[in-house]
Design a protein around this nucleic acid. Structure first.
Lengths: 152, 152
DNA sequence: GCACTCCTGACCAAGGAGGTCAGGAAAGTC
DNA sequence: GACTTTCCTGACCTCCTTGGTCAGGAGTGC
């Protein structure tokens, strides 16, 4: 139930790309500096994003990375899945495929609900939202409660 | 963003304990058989639950495990935290402590929302709910959408 | 041809996941 | 007091992931 460095880095780099808009390819180095991410590690992450069709790239002078689609069509969920794999799997299998026995029978519904609630946030927020700061209302609702900001 | 075997096992074992109610201590072996969990591994998990004050135990003949508190006062969140640590930390630090730069500034709110949405599910469901199958409405709402049941 | 930038695979250290094993320590029974 | 039962604890194990680094190759632009 944690967010890996890779996922965090990936979203941050993608946010920079979204902000760059159509000003042409952005060098990996610039992304790394803007977000304080180790360059070589970031390059691997960008490659994964490329393989998942989220980012495009060109080599050579004037080369760099850019978003494959408009920023308002790329969700955080996509990026997280690209680098971390499926969201909210239990023991590496999707919750809908698990059969629980005995008194744990209803646990499946709980894990399904967990996944759905994650999707409700991650699939709603696009890179455009993130960069503009105008986050969808679901995020506003959840962060409005001061309790959401305290550790537990 | 995944649920470990340990967390899954812990919740299932706790559900069995909740179902056993006050019929006296339940042997680890019986829990292991009921939920098909490797016994020795389960014993380590139960020990962690004990250290977190969720479960109690007695050794010897007629020994076994039981819940330290009534089943309707123990939430899934507690159990998950006991065995997996804090929920939804980013790179092992709580989201409220992270400072984002550049165009990723609003990412903090997204991770806070992610954590809040997880809590909304995990802190609402108690062991009593789980065993009875009468899950809180938040779970019902989330699992009602057929879309929640399909992989993506 | 040369500089630039991405692309790729190999490697690495540390830690976690998912266990197993062996023995010790309390509790109950005879 | 001996014996059985059951939990308690630490050590160990293998495999995989995390979070990187390094070295070189392959396009691209001038």
């Amino acid at each position: 139930m944690r967010v890996s460095a890779k996922a965090d880095y990936a979203v941050r780099a993608a946010a920079e790309l979204a902000a760059a808009g159509d000003e042409g390819p952005v060098k990996g180095e610039r992304l790394a500096e803007a977000q304080d991410i180790p360059l070589q590690f970031l390059e691997h992450i960008l490659l994964e994003l490329k393989h998942h069709g989220i980012v495009r790239a060109r080599r050579g002078a004037k080369g760099g990375y850019w978003l494959a689609r408009p920023a308002d069509e790329v969700t955080i969920a996509e990026i997280v899945r690209a680098v971390e794999g499926p969201i909210a799997h239990v023991q590496s299998t999707p919750p809908e495929d698990i059969e629980y026995r005995g008194h744990a029978e209803h646990l499946q519904e709980v894990w399904i609900a967990v996944r759905a609630s994650l999707r409700n946030v991650l699939e709603e927020v696009t890179l455009a939202d993130l960069v503009s700061g105008e986050l969808p209302s679901v995020v506003g609702d959840l962060t409005a409660d001061p309790d959401a900001w305290v550790a537990r």
